[in-house]
């Protein structure tokens, strides 16, 4: 565990907390993609199956359970809460799951370290996490008024990615056997997806304006 990884995890946790807070406090999920949230829930389920058979640290297990619980809590609010679900932009959130899930599953079946069920699911979760933000980015591009909490949520997620890359660079330099190329490539792609968003986020922040993405 290094400082970069800890910062990454904390930004990840913070992004989820901001989203949950937004939903609970404003009773609204406007601007949030349910597709992205459900994909994240699927990512966590596939990746954290190892909760049942491997133990790394109390910190790891605690965070895994927290991520699972919060992901399902967000999905539950957006799908079933009487008030919140009415604010969901159903017509705008049209990204098809199959376009993301199918290629990731295929890739995980072909490109993995070991052809076992848990290892393939773990690899699938890594690939899927890399692209799961796409429905959210598409939704934001369609939405005229992006509220600050939504913008901050995505920015925090981007910060989490950024710190994880620093963490990998650090581990690559300090650990003899750190050669996780599947994680590296997926992670870089995932972070690159945020680059465009961050450009406009910084632009609007500098101009002290509400975030608006160009069509």
């Amino acid at each position: 565990m290094n400082l970069f990884r800890l910062c990454g995890d904390m930004f990840h946790l913070l992004s989820i907390m901001v989203l949950l807070l937004k939903i609970r406090a404003t009773r609204s999920c406007r601007g949030i993609s349910l597709k992205t949230q459900e994909l994240y829930a699927l990512v966590f389920v596939c990746r954290y199956l190892d909760l049942f058979y491997s133990f790394i640290s109390v910190y790891n297990s605690f965070m895994k359970v927290t991520f699972l619980a919060t992901a399902f809590s967000i999905v539950r609010y957006m799908r079933y809460d009487k008030v919140v679900k009415q604010t969901y932009d159903r017509e705008q959130d049209t990204f098809r799951y199959v376009f993301l899930i199918a290629p990731c599953l295929l890739l995980a079946l072909v490109l993995n370290h070991r052809f076992t069920l848990t290892e393939v699911l773990w690899t699938f979760s890594i690939y899927l996490e890399a692209v799961a933000i796409l429905p959210q980015l598409v939704l934001m591009q369609r939405t005229q008024n992006i509220d600050n909490l939504t913008a901050n949520y995505v920015a925090l997620l981007g910060a989490y990615r950024g710190f994880y890359i620093l963490n990998w660079i650090y581990r690559f330099a300090t650990e003899r056997h750190y050669r996780q190329w599947i994680v590296w490539i997926s992670g870089v792609i995932q972070t690159a997806l945020y680059a465009d968003f961050f450009f406009y986020y910084a632009l609007c922040w500098k101009a002290n304006k509400r975030l608006q993405l160009p069509a």
């Binding site: 990840h12 491997s54 790394i56 790891n60 965070m63 370290h113 773990w122 056997h177 750190y178 996780q180």
Partner: peptide, 10 residues
């Protein structure tokens, strides 16, 4: 792990 594939991150 020796093969560097321990899933010790989140």
């Amino acid at each position: 792990a020796a093969d560097g594939q321990a899933h010790d991150e989140l």
